[in-house]
Computed example of a mutant assay.
Amino acid sequence: MYEPLFNYIERYARAGIADGEKDIIRSAFELKRLSKKQYFSEEGKVCLYTGFILKGAFRQYSVDDSGMEHILQLAIENWWIVDRQSYINQTPSAYFIEAWEDAEVLILPRAKLDVILTIPAIQSMFWQMSENNHIAFQKRVDDTISLNAVKRYENFERLYPQIVQRFPQHQIASYLGIARETLSRIRRPSSR
């Protein structure tokens, strides 16, 4: 059950994990199963965990005053899911994180974060993840302000084909900041 997490850590940390360190990681993380549509975290509540997805898919979103959803993140196996601001600062979340499919997640309670941060491979992994997240965020903002809807979708489809297959069009459109109807036109084979 922990092998995908260990593989992820070693891939991003580029360093091995000693057996004793694996025991620390196993004792810090817990397995959580969620049913489709079950919340991992809810708006207005503190996000208590960060989660490494073993199985399933999640979406992180906010809901505006008119009831419209705005997708912030779509995530699948071997990705992390968390409202980082709420989790780190222990403040109420502005987002919902919902299982889009039945899911299994290794969760790390905030209280155990400092324990695993004593492991050099974990420190390195979190640093690399933070760098990658920052770069991806910059690219997403740049694409949103500088590319038309067609190019945004083409880039997304090229980078994340598995997400395109697992989430409905309206959620992908929301994530990309384009209208559902526009995405429908883009995805029609005759329009490409």
Rank of each mutant, 00 (worst) to 15 (best):
M129D: 11
Y160W: 07
R185G: 11
A28M: 09
E69A: 13
H70T: 11
S124W: 00
M68A: 11
E98C: 12
R140P: 03
D65A: 02
W100M: 10
I178F: 12
R187V: 07
I145Y: 14
S27C: 01
Y49S: 01
L176M: 11
Y2P: 04
N89K: 15
L106I: 01
N155F: 05
Y175E: 03
F126Q: 02
L48V: 00
F52M: 11
T118V: 08
E181I: 13
R33V: 00
V141I: 10
I163S: 02
A15T: 15
E104P: 11
Q38Y: 01
F167H: 01
E30C: 06
D102Q: 02
K22C: 06
I53C: 09
G67R: 14
G56N: 03
D114W: 10
F137V: 05
I81A: 09
K139E: 15
Y49W: 10
Q73Y: 03
F29Y: 13
K139A: 13
L106N: 08
L117T: 04
Q90Y: 00
K139G: 01
K55W: 04
L54W: 04
I76F: 02
K112G: 00
G16R: 12
S130C: 09
I9V: 13
L183I: 09
I24P: 00
V46M: 08
P92K: 15
S27D: 15
G56V: 05
V82H: 01
D64H: 06
I9C: 10
L106E: 02
L183A: 09
L72G: 01
Y2C: 03
I71S: 12
I24S: 01
E43G: 06
L54N: 13
N148G: 15
L159S: 12
P120G: 12
R152W: 05
Y2H: 07
I71T: 15
A57G: 08
K32D: 00
W127P: 00
I97D: 07
K37E: 08
K151H: 14
E181K: 15
S35Q: 13
N155Q: 14
M1S: 13
F156T: 07
V105N: 04
D23N: 06
M1G: 09
T144I: 04
